[in-house]
């Protein structure tokens, strides 16, 4: 049921991308490819022409499934090639940022649930995080850590050093919704009738928090964590541009500048696919966490 729904969404996304590709006048694309500045050989142009002449809905969508997204209008190279160049960089960045975001969120939410004195301050942190423009945060971090304190070199430095600031820039806005939902779920679970019953058995607050409340607060948190995957990809556009990293995000920015529709659509389809698959996974994990949902 849920799998079918996910497939339906993907199919619709593919179709939408196809319609948008068709919306571009085909010949004008070919004219672009024939621009001598691209330096394509006649053989390559013939290949591209064959691809676009083959056309047709089934051909294109099946192509998407195989990873064949056509040719970049900007460089004349296959879109897949350009994607493959950027993907490892972005994957590294996004993974690290996601892990950091979750750590930050858990830290904030649990600290707020534990300490009644710092609670107000801690719960204000996510709203601040969510209000900060990522590009500005990146610039601010460069300013403080690279120029003022000189802790992270602007150019060069080890790979880890180069990752620190971008990861932080990407992680901060993403940690906010996770922290908010986790904190709210913790509060909400604490008001449930079974909590005083456990307390009446003689359990301490931390016993209740770790053994009962945390587990019950997990599903909504996981849902929102899944939803942030889309933001990871979108956020990498800004982060990679600010830090001058060559990944899928930077590729996207360049594609929009160059009116390179096939590349942008490939990124969109990729993002939608990742998003749908991650959220499908979240839904499939749910019954494990909450036995009420198991059949």
């Amino acid at each position: 049921m849920r799998v079918g729904q996910a497939l339906l969404v993907l199919w619709a996304a593919f179709t939408a991308a196809y319609i948008l590709l068709q919306a571009m006048p085909g010949d004008s694309i070919l004219i672009k490819f024939q621009n001598p500045e691209l330096g394509l050989s006649p053989q390559q142009i013939a290949e591209i022409r064959a691809y676009y002449d083959a056309g047709g809905y089934l051909h294109t969508v099946l192509g998407f499934l195989r990873g064949d997204f056509g040719y970049s209008v900007d460089t004349g190279t296959p879109v897949l090639e350009r994607l493959a160049e950027g993907l490892p960089e972005t994957a590294k960045l996004a993974t690290a940022a996601f892990v950091l975001a979750v750590l930050l969120a858990v830290l904030i939410a649990f600290a707020a649930s534990h300490s009644s004195r710092l609670r107000g301050v801690l719960l204000a942190v996510p709203s601040l995080f969510i209000s900060v423009p990522a590009f500005w945060l990146g610039i601010l971090l460069i300013q403080v850590f690279s120029f003022r304190l000189g802790l992270v070199p602007v150019i060069g430095g080890s790979e880890i050093q180069q990752l620190i600031l971008p990861v932080l820039t990407l992680a901060v806005p993403i940690s906010a919704p996770i922290a908010q939902v986790l904190a709210r779920s913790l509060d909400q679970v604490f008001t449930q009738p079974f909590v005083p019953v456990v307390a009446a058995k003689g359990a301490s607050r931390s016993w209740i928090l770790w053994r009962h409340v945390a587990r019950n607060a997990l599903p909504p948190t996981l849902t929102v964590a899944g939803l942030t995957f889309g933001e990871l990809i979108a956020g990498s556009v800004v982060t990679e541009t600010v830090f001058g990293r060559n990944g899928v995000g930077r590729l996207t920015e360049q594609a929009v500048n160059a009116q390179d529709t096939p590349v942008l659509l490939a990124v969109v389809v990729l993002a939608a696919t990742v998003f749908v698959l991650v959220n499908l996974l979240v839904d499939l994990v749910f019954p494990v966490l909450d036995p009420r949902l198991a059949r």
């Binding site: 005083p196 009446a200 058995k201 019950n216």
Partner: peptide
């Protein structure tokens, strides 16, 4: 004392048990 000397039987049995345990 709680649980050992005084036990509590709560009101609403449907919500008084942790649903995931």
């Amino acid at each position: 004392i709680r649980g050992a000397q005084i036990g509590l039987v709560p009101q609403d049995p449907s919500n008084s048990l942790n649903p995931v345990k």
